[in-house]
Amino acid sequence: MINRRNFLVKSASALAITFVVPSLLSGKAHAKKPLAQKVTDKQSWGIHVDAGKCVEGCTACVDACNEENGLTGFGRPETDSQWIRKVTVKNKTTDKITTMPMMCQHCENPPCCDVCPTGASFKRVDGIVMVNQHTCIGCRYCMMACPFKARSFVHETLTQQNTNAPRGKGCVESCNLCVNRIDHGSETTACEDACNKAGHSAITFGDLKNPSSKVRLAIDSNSPRRLRNDLNLQQKVFYSNI
């Protein structure tokens, strides 16, 4: 006879078998940080972009970022928030045209943090450069300091923000390497997922300190460079084939 208690116990064990066991078997590439633990400098997040694989006209990464972070425009391209954008450049001597995504380059020596009067612009110990919106006063010095124009200012009252991506008027914002996803153990950013799904695989995210991470493999098998290397900002976003 199955009584209520028995049924519950049985369903609970069935659940455990279906959902716990696969997670044991899946063999994650990096150990997931327990949610209660603070981030450490044992990891250093970065991105490799293979511009050779980036396709002109494709905006999959931009669209995915907008969806992930609830970025909606007001039909004002000059001021609407962009955390990632597509840039097309032409080499003057060879006429070679390259298209690639540009986002916060997550500098090791970030000028945005140097100029921030409140410390709201900061580099997390695992290398993510971001804005603490609770202390941002909206002065926009960081936007002027950034050589990559990676930051946006929210000019309008917002509604319909995503639970995982609070944002609002009067604050500066930029790519945070999908920090919420990463903290919850995701191994990909939204832009990377979308680029893979579109069949291009131009974006690779991962831990730069782990020699067998996918981003390190991508970096080691290409010979990428940093943009504006002359500024010695030691960015953690690398570009190949530009």
Binding site: E67, E68, G70, Q133, T157, L158, Q160, Q161, N162, T163, N164, P166, R167, G168, K169, C171
Partner: peptide, 11 residues
């Protein structure tokens, strides 16, 4: 003004 006042996640 920043935090969603109801559960809302990307599609």
């Amino acid at each position: 003004s920043c935090h969603a006042a109801e559960p809302r996640f990307p599609q």
